[in-house]
């Protein structure tokens, strides 16, 4: 079976793509009614606590997972155009400003995993990418990722997803620009500054369509395989909140008229390390119970962009003062986003 699929990918990549897309669409069309029918079959009243929790769970889990599989596959193919080496070559030697915008945007499409944040950081700095520009990349890459965007799209709709995308990019661009202006190069660890400059090569190996399809499949196996338990757990908790927490309960803690709720949400988010996958379904449920959108967005961004484990890894290349500046600048950006949203909406 796998051998057959393998040969197919080699010989008819376009056909495989079209077939795959059709199959995905057919599945998406049938899964939603199927999950509704399944809940209707269960011996619980639909308007009971358990009934509304089950409905949320069975309705959202297949929808989210299917959307995620599709988007992660496409992103895997897109990622294959933007290797870290090529991104670095695009950014090396550019002045701040435009380069910050480029770096943040490239952060969205370049494959990124927090376990290689440090080698990537060093690679950029070594090749002469300015520090502030490197930070724009490093802030955008984890914060605006396909998993977060898919969940926002599935649970909140495209407007909120787009809002999150543009705000995340804005924070990354502005924060990187400020860090660049502060001229903190002296606060890189000494061994990083002593590394010999890297020569910038961009590999121009031709990549065929079938290789990109394989990259997409690998991305699905890798990303969906890693995050699905978090998503299911997150939706389960969200479902429990939907079913059992009284309406408007969250308004008293996370409502827009509580000025301290935004900084509290940011502070609570820093030590939490339940990636986007787990936190977004919970936030969606809280929102339904009266939490303010700005506060909820601030919480999400803080969980995703400022994580304690990542700081511990970054400490190996940054001196404490640079880490503190990084946290302060990004946290301020998130605070502004939270307050602006609570005020406007």
């Amino acid at each position: 079976m796998t051998a057959l699929a393998h040969r197919w990918t080699r010989e008819h990549p376009q056909l495989l793509l079209i077939l795959g897309a059709a199959l995905w669409l057919a599945l998406y069309r049938t899964l939603i009614p199927a999950s509704e029918a399944l809940v209707a079959l269960l011996p619980v009243a639909r308007d009971s606590h358990l009934g509304s929790a089950l409905q949320f769970f069975f309705y959202d889990t297949p929808k989210v997972l299917l959307l995620l599989t599709g988007i992660v596959f496409v992103m895997g193919m897109v990622n294959s155009y933007f290797t870290p080496e090529r991104t670095r070559a695009l950014l090396a030697g550019r002045a701040a400003g435009v380069a910050n915008v480029m770096a943040a945007s490239l952060g969205v499409v370049t494959p990124f995993c927090s376990c290689s944040a440090v080698p990537l950081f060093i690679g950029f700095v070594q090749a002469g990418v300015p520090l502030g520009v490197t930070f724009s990349f490093l802030i955008a890459a984890p914060m605006v990722n396909e998993v977060a965007l898919t969940l926002l799209l599935a649970l909140f709709g495209w407007k909120i997803a787009l809002l999150y995308l543009s705000l995340g990019l804005t924070i990354a661009i502005v924060a990187g620009w400020i860090i660049g202006r502060l001229r903190l190069e002296a606060y890189l660890e000494d061994w990083v500054r002593e590394l010999p400059p890297a020569q910038v090569l961009s590999d121009d190996g031709t990549v065929h369509l079938q290789d990109r399809i394989e990259a997409g499949i690998n991305n699905v196996r890798d990303v969906v395989g890693r995050v699905w338990p978090y998503i299911v757990a997150g939706i389960a908790i969200g479902a429990a909140i939907h079913g059992y927490v009284p309406q408007d309960f969250m308004a008293s803690i996370m409502g827009a008229d509580r000025w301290w709720s935004v900084p509290l949400a940011v502070l609570m988010g820093i030590p939490m390390y339940t990636n986007a996958a787990g936190v977004i379904p919970i936030v969606q449920a809280l929102l339904a119970k009266g939490a303010a959108l700005g506060t909820a967005l601030a919480f999400m961004m803080s969980v995703i962009a400022l994580s304690l484990p990542e700081m511990v890894i970054l400490r190996k290349v940054l001196k404490p003062r640079l880490i503190a500046t990084f946290i302060a600048v990004v946290a301020s950006g998130i605070l502004v986003v939270g307050y602006v949203f609570n005020a406007v909406l």
Binding site: R88, P111, C113, C115, S116, P119, I122, G123, Q126, V192
Partner: peptide, 8 residues
């Protein structure tokens, strides 16, 4: 870092 590898 000395090997110049950017993604692990």
């Amino acid at each position: 870092a000395r090997h110049g590898v950017m993604s692990t």
